[in-house]
Every structure is written in C-alpha cells, then in structure tokens.
Write a protein that binds this DNA or RNA. Structure first.
Lengths: 215, 215
DNA sequence: GTCTATACACTGATAGAC
DNA sequence: GTCTATCAGTGTATAGAC
C-alpha cells in the first residue's frame, strides 16, 4: 500500500519518518552511552554517530537525560523478555538452561544495551529505580516461588533462589559487560561461534550440576 | 620519635603530610568516580568530598586523568592480592572456596573500587589496557594451569578453566557492582552479616558442586 | 521538519597572593 | 604548601533562517 498520496515529493525516501529518525538516534545513543557512560557521552558525538546535526537530536529528544531514559527503558524490556522462557519450562534443567541460553544471546546481540544497564545500576539507578522496585521486584518474587516449588518437588537441591538468580544474572551479563576483558584474554579477538557455545555449555553444566538439577 | 624539630608550628597536626593528603584525595576520588563515572565526576565534587579546595587536588594530581589512573591502579592491586590464596591451596575445594571468600570480602569492603574497575573495563580499559595484556593475562594463564592439573588429577570435573574463572569473577563482583540492585531487592537494606555469609555459602556450594569438587 | 549560529553554564586547569 | 580568583575550552540547549 502506497503513502497517502504518491504526488507528495517528501514521501518516504528523503524525508525520514519520525519513527525512523528516533530509532536511528536511539541506536547511536545506546552505542555512545555504552562506550563513554552518561557523563562522558556528548550530544555532539551521538549526532555524529547517527549522521545528523546535533540540533535534530534535541528536536526528537528535548534533553540528554530524556534520551538516556528512553535508551535505558528499551534495554529493560529486552532484559525482561528473557523471563518468559523461565515460566514455560516444566523443570529446572529446561527452565534455567533455556534462561541461560537466552541471557547469553542477549549479552552477545545487545552488548551495548547490557553495558548501559550495568552502568545505570552501578550509579544507583537514578533513572530506573522505580522499575527496580516494582517490575523487577515482582518478577524476582515470582521466579523465587517457581524455584522453591522445584526444590519442594525434589527436582533440585535446596539452595537459596535469590543467590541463584544473582549468579545467573552476573555470569551471563559478564560476557557483555566485561566483553573487553574477555576479548583481551582471548588474544584480542572476540569470542567466535564455537567459543560462545562453549561458554553456554560450561555455564549450564556448572550451574545445573551445582544446584543438583543434572548428574 | 618527634618530627625534625618540635619548634616548627607546622609539624603534623595542621600541615598534613603529603602522603596523608594524597590518601584523603584518593579515597574521595574513588567514591566519586564510583558514583558518577569518570565523565560524570568533577574535580570540584571530589574536592568537596575530601574537604579541600579544588586547587589542592591539582597540586597533588596535576590532571583529572592522572588522579583517575592512580585510583584504578590501586584497585587492580587489591584485585590481584586475592590471587595468592589460589596458589597456596592444595586442591580445588580449598583453593576455589578460599578465592570466593576473598573476592566476596573485597566486594563488601571495596565496593567503590570494584565499581570503578568495572566501569574502566566496560569502557574499553583506556587506562588499564596494558595491565590486562600483561599482568592479568599471566595470572590467568597460571591459574588455568593449576585448574587443569586438578582436572588431570581427578579432583574435579573436566570443565573449561577459563569459563570457570569468568564465573568466579562475575558472581563475586556482582555483589559490589550491582549492590544497589541487590539492596533494592532486599527491601532497600544492605545485606547484613548473615546474608553475606549466606551468599558466600550458596556460591561456594553451587560452584564447587558444579565442578565436581564436592558431593 | 531541518540545520546553522549562538547563548549560557560549567569544568579542568592555572596564576599568583599568602 | 595552601587557597582565591580567573581563564580558556567545551557542553547542553535554543533561536531563528530555511
């Protein structure tokens, strides 16, 4: 289906639609915020990465903080999306295993987002604090109940669900947040496909065996 | 033993010795860099926290980057000091167990330092890259050999030592770097003594059992 | 909607009195 | 060694032409 009228010269090609411009800016912002932090990032640099004049950024996102806020909220959504897998599972081996796979995939595909998230939390979550207190707290409580049920059913050892969750978050996100360190220890090269599979396999093996979900 | 001469009115009380002033500034800097990141930290704020005029900072540390560099290097030393424990052990249960205890203690006592370190690595290690390529790489290689020997001796399962180390780093440092998130999920209160012991115990249980070092 | 030019605030760093 | 006053540079944000 064509635009409202094909006669309009400012249809789709030259004039970017609002949504496209915003997505372009958000992508550039995520990259720059990840590399330089909120304080180190400049609107000028974000504009350069996006290939737009600086003033355009302020047209779509009035302030730097508002732009940052949107970036963080987007990441939080991705962070939560991996949660669904947890619920659909019928046991710890499947549920936690799939959760590790999903979070590792996020660390690989959205490394910049993960870093922005880490930075935000490290600095006391000035923007996302309300989400931590509501959405994240509720999600965590729900998952703790699931794990406790698995323990009661004798499908895994009686470990503290809270510390297990922290270990899952820490370990998977480490591959994004500390990716530079891992890359350096890997001889300067990013992990290849095989190494990522190795990482997933090792993590799953240690944790699932550690909680008594597998032999 | 008194100062060179007790007659000097600017002996010890009023006139801070160089070492003391530097330590005071470094402590304030670590706190501010941890809370705001390198870009977000200001020399003015560091000065305020240290209780000194801004110009004094530039007297002891000519530039902001040099001050930051010293903070990062100090943290790296603490990071490495926990390594010794690893070597003195005669098996994985003792060695890795003690290493977890030591790194958790660092996360608790030097949370700010851990955050500065995390931030530095996340942003591509602009200051500490040479240490990653030399000291850290050598340390890691040495520890991998130890773990491989333990595997050969049948004292633990055949997991990839590299990913085990990453898991150890990630999990222990998470309690410092994501301390704010953990605190929020703990009802807004920092972990108390018992909870820290719980954390250590759960981590050790899962990992040591996960690598087949204990039942 | 897009972009150039610019206002205004802040920051790192220094000069120079004490 | 310590501190006040200040400079030069940079950053966010906006005004206003197109």
């Amino acid at each position: 289906m064509a635009e409202t009228t094909a006669a309009s010269p400012k249809a789709t090609s030259k004039k970017m639609r609002r949504q496209e411009a915003e997505a372009l800016i958000l992508a550039a912002a995520e990259k720059v915020f990840a590399e330089a932090g909120f304080g180190g990032a400049t609107m000028q640099l974000i504009a350069d990465v996006a290939g737009l004049p600086k003033a355009n950024l302020h047209y779509y996102f009035p302030t730097k903080e508002l732009l940052y806020r949107q970036v963080v909220q987007r990441i939080f959504q991705i962070w939560l999306q991996a949660a669904d897998i947890f619920d659909q599972a019928e046991g710890p081996e499947e549920g936690i295993g799939a959760y590790i796979d999903a979070k590792m995939e996020i660390s690989r595909r959205h490394a910049d987002g993960s870093k922005v998230w880490a930075s935000e939390v490290m600095h006391g979550a000035p923007v996302i604090q309300d989400y931590l207190e509501t959405t994240l707290t509720e999600w965590t409580t729900g998952r703790i109940e699931v794990i406790e049920r698995w323990i009661t059913e004798g499908r895994m050892a009686a470990i503290d669900p809270r510390h297990l969750l922290y270990m899952l978050w820490a370990t998977t996100q480490h591959y994004a947040d500390f990716g530079h360190q891992i890359e350096t220890l890997n001889g300067g090269a990013p992990l290849d496909d095989v190494q990522w599979e190795d990482a997933k396999f090792n993590i799953k093996t240690i944790i699932l065996r550690g909680i008594g979900a597998i032999e």
